[in-house]
């Protein structure tokens, strides 16, 4: 089977600080991968650099065997919830429709079919009743579900999600994990920037452990060990242990 995503020797920096150093990995179709690592490990930057949203200083990224610009419609990206202005004058349905803008084309208006698709996606996230709700009136968890509905409506083959579970309520977390498992069952590939080490073993079949470079990558059962966790979080975890315990 061909990998859906190949990353070779990826380098990236913010100003003069190197954030990604020779990052190399392959992702196989139908996998659900958690990207974990301490703050500043370059998790979000990895997603952004792969998607050409952040300058790449070196290396190669191939989606479905080709450059990102040729595979855009097959990739669904969910930025961090905090990256947008939720006071923007628009409603939940409209935000989901934005996921279709790549397909609708420049000058056409979204039609009834697009609206139906968007409503369907909201329904899958349990948000159908909030379609016409102004987005600032939604709770954090509801906003995150709208973001995921927007990714769903893109009907991509590979999903890249940046911290979708950060600061959401338990019901939203269950709804999101359920959605991710459904996607995997449908043969889609999902990568999630994740922060909760407790749930990695139960929720993700693969894990990419990142600290500027790849510390370990593979099936969770094989590589998610005390040793790799310690190497990923390094002194950071030990310092934290001293403080908390």
């Amino acid at each position: 089977m061909e990998p859906v995503l190949q990353v070779r020797g990826l380098h990236a920096a913010y100003r003069r600080t190197k954030v990604l150093d020779h990052v190399t990995f392959d992702v196989m179709p139908g996998t659900l991968t958690a990207i974990i690592g301490p703050n500043g490990a370059g998790k979000s930057t990895l997603l952004k650099t792969m998607l050409d949203l952040h300058p790449r200083l070196g290396g190669e990224v191939r989606f479905f065997g080709t450059a990102y610009r040729n595979a855009k419609l097959k990739v669904g990206y969910v930025p961090q919830r905090g990256s947008v202005d939720w006071d923007f004058p628009t409603d939940a349905l409209d935000v989901v429709l934005m996921g279709l803008y790549g397909r609708i084309g420049w000058f056409r208006r979204p039609g009834r079919r697009h609206r139906e698709l968007a409503l369907e996606a909201l329904d899958k996230m349990g948000m159908a009743d909030f379609a016409k709700r102004q987005i600032s009136e939604l709770s954090g968890g509801q906003q995150q579900r709208v973001f995921l509905a927007r990714a769903l409506v893109q009907d991509a083959d590979l999903y890249l999600l940046d911290e979708p579970l950060a600061g959401v309520d338990a019901a939203t977390e269950r709804a999101i994990m359920e959605m991710l498992r459904t996607l995997r069952a449908a043969g889609k590939t999902v990568m999630v920037v994740h922060h909760d080490l407790q749930t990695v073993e139960d929720d993700f079949d693969h894990v990419l452990m990142l600290n500027r470079t790849v510390i370990a990558h593979g099936p969770t059962t094989e590589i998610f060990t005390q040793d790799t966790i310690a190497r990923t979080y390094g002194g950071w975890l030990r310092r934290k242990e001293r403080v908390t315990g």
Binding site: K48, L53, V84, F88, D94, V95, M98, G102, W106
Partner: peptide, 21 residues
């Protein structure tokens, strides 16, 4: 003419860029 593009680049430039706008 560019109504949708103005909307998405104002609300969520990261997604807009990822979609190729």
């Amino acid at each position: 003419a560019f109504y949708k593009a103005w909307k998405i680049t104002s609300f969520d430039p990261a997604l807009a860029a990822a979609l190729g706008i």
